[in-house]
Simulated scan of single mutants.
Amino acid sequence: MGLAVIDGQLELLDQSQLPQVERWLAIDTIPAMVEAIQALRVRGAPLIAIAAALMIAVRAEAGDDRETLLDAIETLRAARPTAVNLSNAMDVLRQSMAATDWRAALVEAADDLADGDVALCEAIGDHGAALIAPGERILTHCNTGGLATAGIGTALGVLRRAHEQDKGIAVWVDETRPLLQGGRLTAWELGALGVPYTLITDNMAAALMARGQVDRVIVGADRIAVNGDAANKIGTYGLAVAAHYHGIPFAVAAPYTTLDPACASGDLIEIEQRAAAEVRGVAGAAGDLCWAPADAPVANPAFDVTPAALITHWIMDAGVFDRADVANGALATGGAAKSLFQ
């Protein structure tokens, strides 16, 4: 996990500098946490939520008053609009503050969110690994491992667990433009875990599928609607279309905290637009480079939405759901998924 609370101080591993530089940042104010979230120093839908929750807990223990903390909750909620885990976590903290000893209740709720995410990741890993046959070649997109969660990860946690079970998997890692979270972060994590992987550019994926070199695609999600539509890092939808055409199973791995019971379908999901500079060039620990005209008009949506019709499996902490399950309401607040919201 890329964060820690040490002696009342929240510290974050600055993911914008990986893999060249492993730098930890001391975050002691709400504006500093907002900046860290928006600059992707901390990222991944589950970890953003945990980091924000722990920041509120740190400020509560530092003595911030109730109204200040309630304002901070709303400020952090707005930092990344697409990732519903953040909003869900802020709801939990706000509800905890109804207690008589609200300060202690808030700190306990934040700790429970962090501990709970570890357990959710373990369950996702176990359920997902059961789908994978020995020797499979699996393609993944963006970063969904221990850098994106409090535990072993979501999609990457599935791959890690399958590797630990000696299934002999190999992983195709999309570099994941424009911020290269696959090339910088997923490759770094898989290398540290000893999982065999090969890094590819995003536009190589369909050609590999056409050659029969991809057996399965597993990605994460930042928000899942009750009909199964899933928002994830831009480029995911294209992978799903290619996988569907080639008859390759396409799975989304996420905890129940990524479900949005108030969102009926993916077309209701707000998509964050990010800075043009991310597309015009690259900046980071390795240096800055601008390869496009400085005034080139840019579209830079951070996410896209994959419709449920293109998803084969939803790998969640409660189990694996298929299209029939989802069509029957398995991701809604009742039926097969009722336990997810209790």
Rank of each mutant, 00 (worst) to 15 (best):
Q9H: 12
D322G: 01
V241I: 15
D7M: 01
T82Q: 08
A72N: 06
D126V: 15
A83Y: 05
P19C: 00
G335F: 00
A32L: 09
A253H: 07
I200Y: 01
G182V: 02
V118D: 07
A292Y: 10
V282D: 07
V171D: 02
F303C: 05
R103M: 09
D295G: 09
A51Y: 13
D215S: 03
T201S: 12
Y245V: 10
R216S: 01
F250H: 01
D112N: 15
F341G: 06
V241H: 05
R223S: 04
G235K: 06
A72K: 05
I169S: 08
V92G: 04
D14A: 10
R280G: 08
V118R: 14
L268F: 09
L131H: 02
L10Y: 03
L156N: 09
D288P: 04
V5K: 06
T154S: 07
P249Q: 01
M33Y: 10
L259F: 14
G146R: 15
D267E: 14
L70N: 11
L190C: 02
R59K: 14
M204D: 03
E272Y: 04
G191K: 03
E136G: 01
A148G: 06
R323I: 04
L40P: 11
A262R: 11
D111K: 15
V84A: 04
L147W: 08
D260G: 02
M55T: 14
T198V: 09
E189C: 02
V219L: 00
A79F: 13
L180S: 05
G128I: 06
N85S: 11
R66W: 12
T140Q: 01
D115Y: 13
L13V: 04
D288F: 14
R94P: 05
Q181F: 08
N88I: 11
L190T: 03
L3K: 09
G334T: 15
Q273L: 13
K233C: 00
H313M: 00
A36S: 14
R323G: 08
G153M: 13
A207R: 12
C142G: 03
V34N: 07
G128P: 05
A192S: 12
A264M: 03
I152H: 12
A162W: 13
A324W: 00
D288I: 15
A336P: 01
I315N: 02
T149I: 11
G44E: 04
A83P: 08
W24Q: 01
A150L: 07
R66Q: 14
A53D: 06
W188M: 01
D166R: 14
D65R: 08
A119L: 15
A205F: 06
